[in-house]
Structure formats: C-alpha cells, structure tokens
Amino acid sequence: MLEMFTYDFMVNAFWAGMIIAVVAATAGSFMVLRRYAMMSDTLAHVALVGVAVGIVAHQSTLWMAVIVSVLAAWLIEYLRYVQKIYSDATMALFLSGSLALAVIIVSLAGSFNSTLFSYLFGNILTVSKDDIITITVVGAVAMGAIVLHFEKLFFVAFDEEVAKTSGIAVGRLNFLLITIVALVVALSLRIVGSLLIGAMMVIPALTAMQYRQSFVRTVLLANLFALLSVLLGLSASYIWAIPSGASIVAAALLFFLLSLLRR
C-alpha cells in the first residue's frame, strides 16, 4: 500500500488534501455554529461556473473558480447582511442557478465531458505541482486570517448581536469568513469535487461537536477527523479506483457514525 507514495500524483493529492482538510475543518466549524452549513455547498456549485468558463475560455479552471466563488460569496453576504434577504432562500437560488449556468456554458461550447465530471466528484489525477503551490499559499493565508481573528470569529458565532455591541466589526468579519470559505471551496474542487466539498466542511465539525468539548478542542478535533478522512479516503480511492471526493466523504461519515455510538 505504501507504494502509492512513490507516485507523484498521489503525493500531490495527499499534500493538497491535508491542507484543504485543515482549512475546511476550521472554517467549517464556524460555519456550522453560525447555521451557515449550506453556504459551502452553494459556493461549490457557484465555483462550477468558474470551472465551466475556464474550460471554455482555455484559462486556469482553479483561478476562475476562485474568482467566481469569491464574488458570489460577497454577493450572497451582501444580500443577507445588508439587504436582509432570507439567507436560505438566497443560497437555494445561487445553488441551482449556478449549476444550471455551468451546464449551459459547457454544453453550448460542446465541452460537457469527463473534465467537468471530475470537478463534480473529485479526481486525484488532476492535481498538478502548480496547483499544490497555489493551494499551499492560499491555504496558509486563509488559516493565518482565521487564527488572527479566532477570538472575534468565536464571539460572533456565539452571539452576533452582543459582539456588535462590544465594538467588533461583525460585517467585516462575516465577509472575511465567507471569503475564506469561497477560497477553500474553489481549491478543493479537484480533490473532493463540487458535490461533496460541502460535506467536507460540515461533517468533521459536526463529528467533533458530539464529543462535547470546549470550542478550541472542538476545532482541533474537527481538524483531526478531517485529516484522518483525507488519509483514509485517498488510500481507498487509490486501492479501489473510486472517485477521491466520494471516498473522503465516506470516511468522514464513518467517523461521524462512530461519534454517535460513543454518546
């Protein structure tokens, strides 16, 4: 089994998967507690529009996905926080609307092929050395931003209104968190796939919460479960030749079921 580490594509996949696991589990913990779990799923579908544009325009699909999902994240947050439009309805609108748009774009260009399919479910063969550099740099910046604002994000998640009366710039923090989520989603498309990245952000956080620990320990546990899910999932993907996203999410689900048995 260790022979898989002799292949560059597997080393790339593990490296990218572990960075994504850490950022997704940390940002996901805040999203779950803010009842914003569906946001990552929505942005994952939106990122597909970026992928579609990238395929059709022969541009970097990764960067197009980053740009489109960050812009969409800001628009969703603007509609929710400033315009006070119901957030679940806004997310439903973006989720289905963007999937439809992505399919239309690639269909019109005659490019609805295995490339787009791999972005739906993840494909470890698609992670290049350049992608690793991008994922490492963007992942480090995202984690740095979360760590520096950890206490304030925690306060806002616990009680947004009191955090606001304490002088915390709640609006700016919300935009920061949602931008990080958009980045994580776009970066994760190739490994986990757009249909499954939402689960990757939510399940480890949900699993960690079953252990009834402090907030810091809950976030650390979520990180541990996410890392283990990536290791287990990618190994299964290599051994049985199944899409990496599906096997990673299945592993995360396994840990969640075990956490339920422990209660």
């Binding site: 304030k152 616990f158 907030f215 810091v216």
Partner: peptide, 15 residues
C-alpha cells in the same frame, strides 16, 4: 454550543 464558561468570559477581552 461547544463553549466552556472560561471561553465565554474571555470573549469580553476580544476587542
């Protein structure tokens, strides 16, 4: 919500 008493009181120092 996964927060201990100490963590909640510490929020008062966040700003």
């Amino acid at each position: 919500f996964p927060a201990t008493v100490e963590e909640v009181v510490r929020m008062g120092r966040a700003v």
